[in-house]
């Protein structure tokens, strides 16, 4: 049990280093994005949001959701079933919700001056909004009080049902409406169509956002593990107390009372 409650020194160090690297990287991204890189020909200073918005979206739409679905599938597969996959899925989805919401907020901030509206019924906006609701549904499912095993099963199945929906949503909404600009960095021939300094800043943004995500998920995972251990311990303690109540010869009073020879 102590292996569960405490991280090994090396693991704790790796997590801390990841978090530190992520935060420092973000600080550098902000510095480069706000002061060093040139304004865009067409968009002017608005382009600076591009160092933040795509990295956040990458984490939210691909990394977090993908990790949560992967964890759910690995839990569902009998050979790889392990509580840690359930915790990983829960942690990734919970952090993912924050990033999805941030994607919508940063996109909205950019859309107001560029498109003239806070919100447009564009394909990517709509499917991201739907993804947010799907993620919130998963979290609601996770919050339902229940035994750990059925809860893990329900959450894993719920994640799979939602995950299957994502490509369908994506394509149907895509046909429905398209206004969002196409992918800039990962376009078909993989040659970025932006200025050098901007590309490096954007790359740094991607890397540090990914590190921040990894750090947050690790910490959240650890909290989930500790919560499980705490629940287990308090259950065992309660059981021990009930057992003690049931035995009249057990010296129950002495435990709570003042030990002999210590009082005034």
């Amino acid at each position: 049990m102590s292996a569960v409650t405490t991280w090994s020194a090396r693991r704790a160090w790796v997590v801390r280093a990841t978090g530190l690297a992520g935060v420092v990287g973000m600080a550098f991204t902000v510095w480069l994005g706000l002061w060093i890189t040139p304004p865009d020909k067409v968009q002017g200073n608005l382009v600076r949001l591009v160092y933040l918005h795509p990295p956040v979206a990458w984490v939210a739409l691909y990394l977090a959701f993908g990790l949560a679905v992967l964890g759910s599938l690995l839990w569902l597969w009998p050979r790889t079933r392990n509580d840690s996959w359930d915790r990983l899925a829960g942690a990734a989805m919970e952090v993912g919700v924050v990033f999805t919401a941030l994607t919508l907020v940063t996109g909205s901030l950019w859309g107001r001056p560029t498109w003239g509206v806070w919100w447009a019924w564009d394909a990517r906006l709509t499917s991201t909004a739907l993804l947010l609701v799907l993620q919130l549904g998963y979290l609601a499912l996770r919050r339902v009080a229940s035994e750990p095993e059925p809860r893990a099963r329900r959450c894993a199945i719920g994640a799979v049902i939602a995950a299957v929906d994502v490509p369908i949503v994506h394509f149907s909404v895509d046909w429905w409406r398209t206004l969002h600009q196409g992918a800039t960095v990962l376009n078909a021939n993989l040659s970025p169509t932006i200025h050098g300094a901007m590309a490096w800043t954007l790359l740094l943004g991607f890397v540090s956002m990914t590190l921040v995500f990894a750090w947050m998920v690790s910490v959240r995972y650890r909290i989930a593990t500790l919560a499980d251990v705490a629940a287990d311990r308090s259950m065992q303690q309660a059981l021990a107390e009930r057992w003690a109540e049931g035995m009249p010869e057990a010296p129950v009073e002495e435990e709570g009372g003042v030990p002999a020879g210590v009082g005034p």
Partner: peptide, 30 residues
């Protein structure tokens, strides 16, 4: 699927719409 998932839970009446409606969005659209 979602009915089975939420059946037996005390919060099923409020949980089911939250789970089902977003997933059913493509049906509404198409």
């Amino acid at each position: 699927l979602y009915g089975a998932l939420s059946s037996g839970l005390r919060v099923r009446e409020t949980l089911l719409p939250l789970l089902l409606l977003p997933v059913a969005a493509p049906v509404l659209l198409a």
